[in-house]
């Protein structure tokens, strides 16, 4: 059925190439490049060069866009908007790879005018490429997790019907919160809030700005580089899959009179405070002590 490989163009706009490099960490890359053909890629050998992309009219099945776009940004003197327009219309599916391509990300703060993601400017929809929305899938993350991108591409190849959230992200990966699967969960559950950096114990939600309970993604479900995650290591989740990444004052929990401004996704304030009040009334020796 798949007698011919789907042709992929990986286009980079205003970016750091972090997604390209993250994808090179995909463990089954060998199989992947047997199954698909990058007809243009910024690092991997490809049939066409960027110059070909600009000068010629090349057929492609999937367009991957990495990086934010702006009417002012050019690739080799060609406006990126023109390149996106040309290949997005040819492609059967478009994937915005990373938070910049999806929401604008860090580089929405750069000096280029109107720097946004393909369909979103932070959480607000944009209109320039509205007609392409029906064939776009967003994969946010700074950077993306390689497996999330690879398996989304396989899902396209196999014509799977992926359920998407409001930002066009596959629910298979983005219905979870980063909190799911964090090894520090017990400290969160029992509101043991004495975290300091450099410890394997403790939860970063109360003091150190961890956004895991209200950020969507699979970081603690599909481990990074197959071994770990930021929160497991002891680094707060910076909310890098979110429309408003990066927020400010990232290592500090924003609190109003002691109550965290951002609560776990979908958990009401009274529910959270009731639970917190109850668990905080008890002290659990095991969780107050070092693990070993």
């Amino acid at each position: 059925m798949y007698d011919k490989k789907l042709k992929i163009i990986w286009l980079t706009a205003i970016s750091c190439n972090g997604n390209s490099h993250s994808f090179l960490n995909y463990p089954h890359l060998e199989q992947f490049i047997d199954d698909f053909e990058f007809i243009y890629h910024p690092l991997i050998y490809s049939k066409y060069s960027l110059q070909d992309l600009i000068n010629k009219d090349i057929e492609c099945d999937i367009l991957l866009l990495e990086g934010a776009i702006s009417p002012e940004f050019k690739k080799m003197d060609e406006p990126i908007i023109n390149l996106v327009d040309k290949y997005a219309h040819k492609a059967k599916k478009i994937i915005t790879v990373g938070t910049c391509a999806t929401f604008g990300g860090i580089f929405s703060q750069s000096d280029y005018a109107y720097t946004t993601g393909l369909h979103f400017d932070k959480e607000n929809p944009t209109f320039l490429f509205k007609s392409l929305k029906h064939k776009t899938i967003s994969i946010s993350g700074c950077p993306i997790q390689p497996e999330v991108l690879a398996n989304t591409i396989y899902a396209i190849q196999k014509n799977m019907d992926l359920k998407l959230d409001n930002y066009l992200r596959p629910k298979e990966f983005f219905a979870y919160t980063i909190h799911n699967g964090c090894t520090r969960n017990e400290y969160f559950e029992y509101k043991v809030d004495n975290h300091t950096f450099g410890k394997k114990e403790g939860c970063m939600f109360y003091e150190h700005g961890c956004q895991a309970p209200y950020t969507n993604g699979s970081c603690n479900k599909i481990l990074w580089n197959g071994v770990n995650s930021k929160t497991r290591a002891g680094l707060p989740c910076m909310g890098c899959t979110s429309p408003d990444f990066p927020k400010q004052n990232l290592f500090k929990t924003k609190k109003n009179m002691g109550i965290p401004q951002n609560l776990p996704l979908g958990v009401g304030k009274r529910t959270y405070l009731t639970l917190a009040g109850i668990t905080k009334a008890f002290s659990i020796k095991r969780l107050e002590e070092d693990l070993f």
Binding site: N256, M257, G258, I259, K269, R270, L273, T274, G277, I278, K280, A281, F282
Partner: peptide, 18 residues
């Protein structure tokens, strides 16, 4: 323990402050 038995009252004061 703690404020468990006065939780409902304390929570509303917290919310008023917050």
């Amino acid at each position: 323990e703690g404020m468990i038995c006065v939780n409902e009252f304390v929570i509303e004061v917290m919310i008023y402050f917050e």
